[in-house]
Design a protein around this nucleic acid. Sequence first.
DNA 1: TGGAATGTTGGAAC
DNA 2: CGTTCCAACATTCC
Length: 245
Amino acid sequence: MPEGPSLFILKEETACFVGQGIVEAGGNTTAIDTSRLVGQTILSLRTWGKHFLIELPDMALRIHFLLFGTYRVNERRDKPPRLFLRTADGDELNFYACSVREIDRNLDSQYDWSADVMSPTWNPARARKKLRAEPDMLACDALLNQDIFSGVGNIIKNEVLFRIRVHPASKIGALPAPKLRALVEEAHKYSFEFLEWKKQYVLKQHWLAHAKTTCPRCQIPYKKAHLGRSNRRSFFCERCQKRYE
DNA sequence: TGGAATGTTGGAAC
DNA sequence: CGTTCCAACATTCC
């Protein structure tokens, strides 16, 4: 579920909830008092990267799906939801195994929307500026940094680095300017390809690097290692992906 | 079937 | 006090 494009799909699927009043709410979350949601109108449903934001008159909720979170719209799983909302029209939104938090209602003061690779206000120049300020950061960590590439997850990270032929342990400060530019451009471009493939249920078959064993370009075995401060799985080709350091 | 994984947080340890 | 490390959370798949 988790990466930014998947949240984008969730937002599309729940657009009909905006403007509706909540007539019933509950779930096994202990983070919020769900009875406070009853009677509130859903003012907006937004996303910032992997955050799903529910804006209400009295509060704002932040849903984070972490690694295993799921949701159902007008359907239920065979498990108790962490949070559910029902509207007067009979629409129902169920969230499972996710983190629920009440956050400050002023979303604009907390979120840099231009950092979200899925946002219409995504700002590549600003991302490059943030990257230039972190020359010692590794490319694999930079892509997972939500302040720079909000919404990018481990799949997108591996696919982007393979496509731009950059080794995950490359130092940001060592990247030639065109490579830095390519990194930022591809993070945005691939996220939208991910979105389309995910909608068509063909995402996995388009993976070129993530969870793969052989480089499709030169046919040698991929290296697999947990790299960087993030210590997440990296799949990379030592022949095709240059290490800048 | 035990281990690993599309992720983040909070607190302990240093 | 800042930085780093690690457990915890929770689900599914191989």
